[in-house]
Amino acid sequence: MIYLLLILLTAAVAPFAIEHYRIAMSDGRRGSAPGQFVELSQGVTHYHLTGPADGPLVVCVHGLTTPSFVWTPLASALNDLGFRVLVYDLYGRGYSDRPDALHDKIFFNQQLDDLLGKLEIQSPFHLIGYSMGGAISAGFAATYPARVRRLVLLASAGTSVIEGPLLHFIRNRGIVGKWLMLAAYPFQLRRGIRAECESVPVLPEISEGQEAQLRFRGFIPAVLFSLRGILFKPLEGEHMTLRRNGLPVLAIWGGKDTVIPASAMGRMAAWNREATHEVIEDAGHGLPYTHTAEILEYVTAFLPAPEGDDWGHDQ
């Protein structure tokens, strides 16, 4: 009986102990990282600001498990065309801090608002969001309509809640849900990365970098905070606000996406009849890094060309 209790106690404690002993994100770890860092109200944020200083600004927001490096191919291509591009690591991912807080719309709005303030960016900019970053971007644009010129959503979350018995339990069972998240999520993420690599060509630095997030303390809790926050409910009100404000919106979907299927466009279209939708039939969920050329073609057709852009610039 004692042995059984010890086994049960070990099973109960192990996921929390493993999380505690994961690598902490620190100044030492950031020392060799590319890009720059800034102290914001909720912690340190890692960012890259690249491209011609007088180019129209494009801000890119990554997804649930993918740090800002997923934007590298697209950002480089946009720079070559004359755009200035800002990418950054959301809290809990990449080289940014891991604050212990609910990752809801207010939380993510604050991070981006703080970052723009520190960089003294005041003029309106284009905003691109990928997966969960699409939900964050839609929320930011709905909250600050005068700051966003055009919005691009890639395989965007926020049209429905990704559900299932396991996710429902994790979202709604407090500390027990957190225990299950810590215990099961590393296996789920690795399996998803392998499945993507088997279905489409993925650059090693993308897949390896995504899996490497599991080594750092605070990453898995950040995913959980987002599941309980920005991803907890559909963003119907935000998308209806975008339509009322007349913000141009382009949504691009992957025809073979099993994470956020292209059928989600129907719900978004019902909320915002003015949005433009495109489908890349052979694409899965990794649009910005598996189908960069196609995304670039759609994005550059949607955004005003830099040479004909007469808006003011901050950077």
Score class of each variant (00 low, 15 high):
48 H>V: 03
44 V>L: 11
13 V>R: 03
303 L>C: 13
37 F>P: 09
227 L>N: 11
261 P>C: 01
4 L>V: 01
60 C>R: 02
10 T>D: 05
313 H>M: 14
237 G>H: 04
310 D>K: 11
77 A>N: 12
213 Q>M: 07
303 L>V: 11
298 Y>N: 02
297 E>F: 07
272 N>M: 10
210 Q>L: 13
77 A>M: 14
15 P>C: 02
236 E>R: 01
90 L>Y: 09
74 L>G: 10
134 G>T: 08
31 G>D: 01
40 L>C: 08
24 A>C: 05
57 L>K: 14
128 I>W: 03
136 I>D: 05
257 D>M: 02
1 M>P: 11
123 S>A: 15
279 V>Q: 03
256 K>I: 04
63 G>I: 07
127 L>E: 14
309 D>Q: 09
17 A>S: 09
267 R>G: 04
210 Q>H: 04
281 E>T: 12
207 S>L: 11
28 G>D: 14
113 D>M: 01
110 Q>H: 12
124 P>T: 10
53 A>Q: 15
34 P>R: 00
12 A>V: 09
98 R>M: 04
147 R>W: 02
25 M>V: 05
49 L>F: 08
251 A>L: 06
241 T>I: 12
199 S>Q: 12
201 P>E: 13
307 E>H: 12
249 V>H: 11
129 G>S: 02
143 T>W: 12
13 V>I: 15
88 Y>G: 00
235 L>Q: 13
267 R>L: 00
315 Q>G: 15
132 M>N: 00
45 T>F: 01
184 A>S: 15
42 Q>H: 10
67 P>D: 05
170 I>C: 10
105 K>G: 12
162 I>K: 14
299 V>W: 04
5 L>G: 04
215 R>T: 03
100 D>Q: 07
202 V>P: 12
173 R>C: 13
268 M>S: 09
38 V>M: 03
50 T>Y: 07
193 I>V: 13
281 E>F: 07
82 G>Y: 10
63 G>W: 02
190 R>W: 06
73 P>D: 10
218 G>P: 04
131 S>Y: 08
170 I>K: 10
159 T>E: 01
55 G>H: 12
86 L>F: 02
13 V>G: 06
262 A>N: 02
246 G>W: 03
168 H>K: 15
216 F>H: 06
7 I>E: 01
85 V>C: 13
118 K>P: 05
304 P>H: 07
39 E>Q: 15
140 F>R: 06
56 P>C: 13
206 I>Q: 13
241 T>L: 11
125 F>W: 06
208 E>R: 11
94 G>I: 05
268 M>V: 04
184 A>E: 14
61 V>F: 02
308 G>E: 14
312 G>A: 15
108 F>L: 13
98 R>L: 05
276 T>E: 05
26 S>I: 00
257 D>N: 04
207 S>T: 08
141 A>D: 05
230 I>K: 09
116 L>I: 03
4 L>C: 08
204 P>F: 07
149 R>M: 13
166 L>N: 13
